[in-house]
Amino acid sequence: MLNYQSTYSPVLTKDFDTRPVTININGKPTTLQLMPWVSLLDALREYADLTGTKKGCDHGQCGACTVICDGDRILSCLTLAVMKEGSEITTIEGVAENGQLHPLQKAFIEYDAFQCGYCTPGQICSAIGMLKEGKAKTRADVKELMSGNLCRCGANTNIIDAIMEVKNQDSHE
């Protein structure tokens, strides 16, 4: 199997014009000068300096880049920023309100639901989306519906404990 030469020929890009893209990020209309090939994830991290949203794989395989877009949890690495013109995006930086941590943020600290902290913003944003969807009834459902967020430190049981705590608070209200 030696001597295989890929015949891959890239499309020669000539057009490097940027365009203004306005996205409502954490309640603030934010205009960024972007080329179309910028993912929403890179737009947030590199162009808007909102590095709370993490890049763990850049291919939709880890969940670290989860943000909330128009109310739904999505992977910001698998969408283009230009496609989100006019959308409402909530990132981890926008989860706390008026300096008050979101109940999930508090529960994550209390239950030690992270170690290195790198998957944490994605886990929290995903959990917010998951609770809003309202489809999880049991702990098993929560585990399944949170399975799009990997944690390599192995904080899994603490993460699910933290989410269950908040889920149970919600259902008691």
């Binding site: 939709g60 989860t66 949890r73 698998l78 969408t79 969807e133 949170m146 399975s147 799009g148």
Partner: peptide, 9 residues
């Protein structure tokens, strides 16, 4: 299939 996030997209 996939994950909740991907199914939303």
């Amino acid at each position: 299939g996939a994950s909740a996030q991907i199914r939303n997209m």
